[in-house]
Design a protein around this nucleic acid. Structure first.
Lengths: 193, 193
DNA sequence: CGGATCGTTGATCAACTTCAACGGTCGTGG
DNA sequence: CCACGACCGTTGAAGTTGATCAACGATCCG
């Protein structure tokens, strides 16, 4: 059941048999259907979600009802409204499923407890966040110093899987572009090479 | 000498006398003058820099020579090209001083070693990164789903100190705006209230 | 079959950038 | 101590990128 999680963790640190048993005791399993919410604006984000299988997205909804996607999560990704989760305050984000999805959940209290009982998880999260920071830095740079086309090209470089996996208009939202703009960019690129 | 650093760390974890002595042994002190570089594009970022005093900025330079600022760092901030530092690969960013600045430096090897010898630092960095992720998430959302004026207002909310401390055209760059745009926004806001 | 979802295309529009010029302030070297 | 240049913010006018609005065709699925 937790193989996906363990193998993900073991890319960064090594786990003993005992570690794994301890870790297992903290997680709960949850299945959600396409379009089902894990989190809605205003609610407190109570769990970190590890995606075992499937695809989810987290996004902000603006006054006009437009989605602005901040993250996709598929096999091996952690997803939450981190600000809400850490501070246990009302979320500004929605999280829902693009495909039927299987999650492993870790509650806020268990998150702390897990690191107390299995110190190697402290290192794991430190390294996970360290890597996340690197990618967020790059997205931030991308977002405010490149053109629409460059943003798209950079995303293709950084995570080509996205285009395979996610409907194009959601990719546009992720890049901060109108769906029509991304469509035109793709057309232009296709003709250029 | 390291009081600023210790008090910053102790906002997150508690340090024993022994911890402090151990920590101290890993850091080196460096003074730089206004306009002096800590890092240039193409070089490998060898150290994490903790700002003891002063003000520095990290930024990308585009083909036309325009700066795109990704971060300001003053007293109590850590600054580096994180991607370059972690992977020891050539940097894409420049880092230089806006004011005369005093730094405490931690090398890549010492960074790992420090966490081995003083385990509580593993937790410190985990929490530091955790908080950084929250603010980066917010900047990313800001950057690709709000208007120029909203971005500025949100920055005022999130870190009002910046306007006190940093020349306006650098703030514009940080927000991904042309300096003229920020000037006009400020004018408009001033007249509106 | 019928509706929802998705990508595309064209036309118009708005936000923000770019370019150019000006005035004020500050710091430094003569 | 003054003068000059660098630096910074501001304003106006013109230009561009990408957003918006509207319509259409294709596909998928219940």
């Amino acid at each position: 059941m937790l193989e996906v999680l363990f193998s993900h963790i073991e890319k960064k640190v090594t786990l003993s048999r005992g570690d794994k048993e301890a870790i297992a005791s903290f997680f709960t399993f949850k299945k959600i259907r396409k379009k089902q919410y894990i989190l809605e604006e205003g609610a407190v984000c109570t769990h970190l979600s590890f995606v075992k299988k499937g695809l989810i997205k987290s996004y902000r909804l603006d006054e006009k009802g437009n989605e602005h996607i901040s993250l996709f999560g598929w096999e091996g990704w952690w997803v939450s409204d981190f600000k809400s989760f850490i501070n246990q305050q009302p979320a500004m984000l929605y999280i829902d499923a693009i495909e039927d999805t299987e999650l492993l959940l870790l509650s806020r209290a268990d998150y702390e407890q897990l690191m107390e009982e299995v110190p190697v998880m402290e290192r794991y999260f430190r390294m996970l966040y360290q890597n996340s920071l690197v990618t967020k830095d790059e997205r931030l740079i991308s977002s405010n110093s490149y053109t629409a086309e460059e943003k798209f090209q950079r995303m293709l470089q950084a995570s080509p899987e996205i285009m395979q996996r996610v409907p194009q208009h959601l990719v546009a939202s992720y890049l901060g572009l109108a769906p029509e703009t991304l469509s035109r960019i793709r057309k232009k690129i296709a003709s250029t090479d």
